[in-house]
């Protein structure tokens, strides 16, 4: 998608996914936890693509995740840890209201 195609629509950037000052969203946190980044250059786009995916599909398969981030290039991680981060965040978001003894 080119920027002019987004004219008139609300746009969320990476700054907009942080729940509050000094806090991280489950996705941002999962990227840190699984080492889903190194240099960080592609990271905002990866996280935003993942946010868009999870908004539509809270329980994505590995293929769904791969498809969702396929528009971004990462030269550091080899993608495996990015996919891991998104799967971990999806699991945590789904399990948010699960009683703690039922959580994995």
């Amino acid at each position: 998608m080119f920027a002019p195609q987004a004219e008139g629509t609300p746009i969320t950037t990476i700054e907009g996914v942080t729940p509050g000052p000094g806090e991280l969203s489950p996705l941002q946190d999962a990227f840190c936890e699984t080492h889903g980044l190194q240099c960080g250059y592609c990271t905002p786009a990866m996280i935003l693509a993942a946010h868009a995916l999870l908004a539509d599909n809270p329980d994505p398969t590995r293929d769904d995740i791969v498809e969702a981030i396929s528009g971004n290039l990462c030269r550091c991680t080899g993608y495996a840890q990015i996919i891991e981060a998104i799967a971990l965040a999806a699991d945590r978001i789904r399990g948010r209201n699960r009683p703690s003894e039922l959580r994995r």
């Binding site: 990476i14 991280l24 990227f31 840190c32 080492h35 240099c39 990271t43």
Partner: peptide
């Protein structure tokens, strides 16, 4: 261990 600089990159505070 968590990487110290990751936090700024996931929050859009990276500087390149």
């Amino acid at each position: 261990r968590r990487v110290r600089e990751d936090r700024r990159f996931v929050a859009g505070k990276g500087r390149f």
